[in-house]
Amino acid sequence: MAKPSLAVWKFASCDGCQLSLLDLEDELLAVADGIDIAHFPEATTAHRGGPYDVSLVEGSITTPADLTRIQEIRAQSGMLVAIGACATTGGIQALRNLADIDEFVRVVYARPAYIQTLATSTAIADHVKVDLELAGCPINKYQLLEVVQALLVGRKPTLPTYSVCVECKERGTSCVMVADGVACLGPITRAGCGAICPAFARGCYGCFGPSESPNVDSLAAWWDELGVARPDLVRALRTFNVNAPQFKEASTRYAQE
């Protein structure tokens, strides 16, 4: 039986999520034995045309050319997996969605006419059918390994939908919000990182995006009690997953108060 083929694609991003694949130092060669890496330009010059059994897509849609390229990728892909905050919510560059894009271009570039860009940065699923989403800025490489392994044998990968709080309990980290009065987004943020920030004496900053049914208003009340000003909460929600629906809805309301 032929090995399943894998393609890795990039849109607007920092390359960190696809680097996670190369960061699986102990597993990389075994993975490469089990699959046919057909297109992964960051790692290899070799390229085989589609169709591909699995496509990993990093990055968000931000240019007119992206709009057609993602359709072409979808058409060539069996399973399409969006990896990382950019691909699943639009990433930090989706802050442009709240601003005037022409001003953004003028701030950075001396000759705005040379720049082709869309007014928004959006998730892959806003444009094509996505079979699986892997959250995180960056993704957790072991979650990526779980996804690749699961797809190889045709089972559903096990990915948490609960919040970072569960991982703090698992890790034995005492609650930084209760014990130290540190503002933390953990209660509304999806698990998957291993609850790193609270273990390093700081609050979670939400890089994995919203957990399933997050109670943002309850968290906002907590932060009020801790004395955090509302503009600070709004900015916290408007960072790496600014365009995630639950964060966007709540931050829009708080910004208007």
């Binding site: 992206d66 930090i92 001003e103 271009v105 701030v107 950075v108 860009t117 600070d232």
Partner: peptide
Amino acid sequence: FESPRFFEALLRGRR
């Protein structure tokens, strides 16, 4: 031709 992400612009107003 990497897509611009406008960091210098989006940093304005951040603490």
